[in-house]
Amino acid sequence: MNIGKQLKEGLITQNPVLVQLLGMCSTLAITTTISNGIGMGLSVTAILTLSNVFISLLRKIIPEQIRIASYIVVIAGFVTMVDLLLQAYQPDIAESLGVFIPLIVVNCIILARAESFASKNKVLPAAVDGICQGLGYTVVLVVMSAIRELLGSGSLAGARVFPADYAATMMALPVGGFLTLGALIALMQWIQNKAKGGK
């Protein structure tokens, strides 16, 4: 087990959003404010870690033919728990994330990690994988939502940076999501190419 390698994969070389291009729907939809980004990122990280652990535990019991359905049942269980917890303790975030918390059930990052990692590895590496991939997702979400919140509504984490009259509202609309995501993916490719060329 190599935590450093898994962390590097989650954050950079196998970043779920910028390299694997998974979980696009929620990434584009909810990254309008930093609090949304953090809330969504941490929810996904928690669900991903827990479902990775459980699927890794059950990996010898789950029959090959119905594995996807079984994964979904496990994931849906944790999503329901997180959804209800958020509604109970963080009602503001739960309201602003809306349908995207229940939709984590079909978030392909979680299913992809279950299929490609948790079902083939022991519990501890699976848990670390969940945390690392979840962190990669969270970091991208926070960066994206910071850019979009700053340019789109002129504030950062709710604090006003410049008057809202000057903010480009397009950046808070879906257009801004696609523009920011495209720019970040390009930046990631550029960094990775630089790193390869440097060797």
Partner: peptide, 8 residues
């Protein structure tokens, strides 16, 4: 122009 409609 489409982007500048930010400032409708």
């Amino acid at each position: 122009r489409a982007f500048m409609l930010s400032w409708a």
